[in-house]
């Protein structure tokens, strides 16, 4: 049986509830900054698409919507396992085994890894064709000029998102290690909750990236 480590709130908080709500608000604010960070890229996307609508249309057809769709499914599933993980932590009683929490967190991390593997194949295929970011772009298969702009933004947007996936995996691994030690139970599960919030945002950003890059064109 796991030994449950009782959580004591930090000295500058009056109660565990205050600590929890502060942490949650902090994460929500952080998510606001993340949305604003990506908003710049979305704006760049909108302006470039308006400037070169035909090029955009043509270039977007060179992305593989099937792989993008697969990755969308993978991430949505990972958000689902994450939501279940938060629920598992919330319903876990102090002193009880939390195999469900550990299993769900592991599944979330594995799905995130799965996303990156698919992304790796997509990227390497593009690199092979000479579709590289910026000045390294050498692909000749698109007639409309300035196609490097589309792919430049494609790599920046998916690259920054991919970086967030990696960070998310790191955060969730830390949560997983603590979960294995039995740190989380119904009265204390802040890291699971805020880690989950972050993970849902990473998923949500992809849900915008996928149609904008692969489908709308």
């Amino acid at each position: 049986m796991n030994t449950i480590v009782k959580h004591h709130h930090a000295h500058h908080f009056a109660s565990a509830a205050q600590e929890f709500s502060a942490a949650k608000m902090g994460m929500w604010l952080f998510l606001v900054t993340e949305v604003l960070l990506f908003s710049g890229l979305f704006l760049g996307y909108a302006v470039m698409k308006t400037l070169y609508p035909e090029m955009w249309h043509e270039a977007s057809h060179h992305l593989d919507w099937k792989l993008g769709g697969l990755n969308t499914l993978v991430l949505i599933t990972s958000s689902f396992t994450m939501a279940l993980a938060v629920n598992a932590a919330q319903t876990n009683k102090a002193g009880e085994k939390n195999a469900r929490l550990v299993g769900l967190l592991t599944a979330t991390i594995l799905l995130a890894g799965c996303f990156l593997v698919v992304k790796y194949f997509e990227y390497s295929h593009k690199f092979h064709d000479g579709i590289l970011p910026g000045a390294h772009y050498t692909y000749g298969g698109i007639n409309a000029p300035n196609a490097h702009l589309f792919f430049g933004l494609y790599f920046l947007m998916t690259g920054l998102h991919g970086f967030h996936v990696v960070v998310g995996m790191g955060v969730l691994t830390w949560v997983l290690l603590r979960a294995k030690k039995g740190h989380f139970y119904s009265e204390y599960y802040t890291p699971v909750e805020v880690g989950g919030l972050y993970w849902h945002l990473v998923d949500l950003i992809w849900i915008y990236l996928f149609p904008l890059l692969y489908l709308v064109g």
């Binding site: 760049g44 302006v47 470039m48 400037l51 070169y52 970011p133 910026g134 000045a135 390294h136 000029p145 300035n146 490097h148 702009l149 430049g152 933004l153 920046l156």
Partner: peptide
Amino acid sequence: LGIGIFDPALG
């Protein structure tokens, strides 16, 4: 990388 979205020479 020379992405080009701010550079008129690159469109």
